[in-house]
Design a binder for these strands. Structure first.
Lengths: 208, 208
DNA sequence: CGATAATCCGAGCGTTTACTCAGCTTCTCA
DNA sequence: TGAGAAGCTGAGTAAACGCTCGGATTATCG
């Protein structure tokens, strides 16, 4: 079983192996959503991808590595979206920024709700997976920095708390929508309600 | 491995066996917090409890059963606390009810934050565990019913949405505090901030 | 073309671990 | 007090599954 800490593996150089890696990741996502984390075996992933188990282990150190790759792709996308929002000009009202953050969180989960559900509910947050899935701290720091920039007068401790609340609620509402009612992701109902919750909060927190 | 669906086992009748079961559950909690879910083996639990593995399987159908017992105890406590809050007289303001709900959520997690952290982060929500850990829907229904009682004029769909937001945010903030800053559970800082967020929201939602 | 590197293959090894069972000990109660 | 019920024991079983390894196949390039 081993569970070694993600040892370095061969990197795909030729187009052939790049394709193989892509197939493996795609298969991982498919197996994960259809079988769940526990019943996802490396052999099944390889078979589903149409490659041999040996090839799989050329590029991924272990089962964790497969899932971590998917998770960090998602995390990277989310971070990118948030960065884009926080690059908005300083003149934007806090409401607008919050609205954009909510939208960013929701957009990032529209792609593959079923996969996200498995990731959230079944994948144990330990080892490499823990790091891969620990976005919240990063996002909170980014949001806090941005808030501080827009409201320099506020004490940093206060800003951090507000960032925590914002990030926590956006993530929670997004995930609830993903796991309990994917429809609401489409209709935008969750988005509207999140704003009803967070806009007054941010106005009071930053405003006079 | 099997993973059969929680088959019925012997129930502890004499005081001796009741004590054994208690020891096993206590050991489960200890091993869970110190080793994590994956590294929690039934043999280790039995050893830690000071009983034989055979005795363990007299009372618990499988590994899931152990964890499910802990989880549903926690869930039962939480539900009881929420029920107590919702039994408050109708004259109470919505703010007061929300404050009480926040407090209930936080109180229920003060007992064993480390255990809750493992339960939330590492235990896969599948099979028996899924049921055991699916409180949110139940709580939302209870909260919705109460809100409707206090504001009969509101459309049911709207009430359900508000209940979802309330329950989601309380749980999320509570869990964040548990896993990221158990201190804030004690200081009451999280509680105050949660109210700053939720009181304006509920007033607008129920009010004129 | 020949040589070297990159890629791919898949049977099977070794370990882990949930769980059983046959027999022993302790309790209950008529 | 003794017979049956309840409880306890722990070495052993069986099966799952992650992962390796020796070797075949294909690409790259002088």
């Amino acid at each position: 079983m081993a569970t070694r800490t993600a040892s370095p593996r061969k990197r795909p150089l030729q187009g052939r192996s790049k394709h193989t890696v892509a197939m493996i990741l795609e298969a991982t996502a498919r197996v994960l959503t259809s079988h769940g984390y526990d019943r996802t075996t490396t052999n099944l992933v390889a078979e589903t991808a149409g490659v041999s188990i040996g090839s799989l282990y050329e590029y991924f150190p272990n089962k964790e590595g497969l899932v971590a790759a998917l998770a960090s792709a998602h995390v990277a996308e989310l971070v990118a979206r948030v960065d884009a929002v926080l690059a908005l000009p300083c003149e934007e009202t806090p409401r607008a920024v919050v609205a954009a953050l909510v939208r960013a969180g929701l957009e990032a989960h529209r792609v593959a709700p079923a996969l996200h559900k498995v990731l959230v509910e079944q994948v144990p947050r330990i080892g490499a997976l823990a790091d891969a899935m620990a976005v919240s701290a990063v996002l909170q720091a980014k949001i806090a920095a941005d808030l501080q920039r827009r409201a320099p007068a506020l004490p940093p401790a206060r800003v951090r708390m507000v960032a925590l609340v914002l990030e926590t609620c956006i993530e929670a509402l997004t995930h609830r929508a993903v796991v309990e009612a994917p429809d609401w992701l489409e209709t935008g109902e969750i988005e509207r309600e999140a704003l009803r919750l967070l806009e007054p909060y941010i106005e009071r927190a930053l405003g006079p």
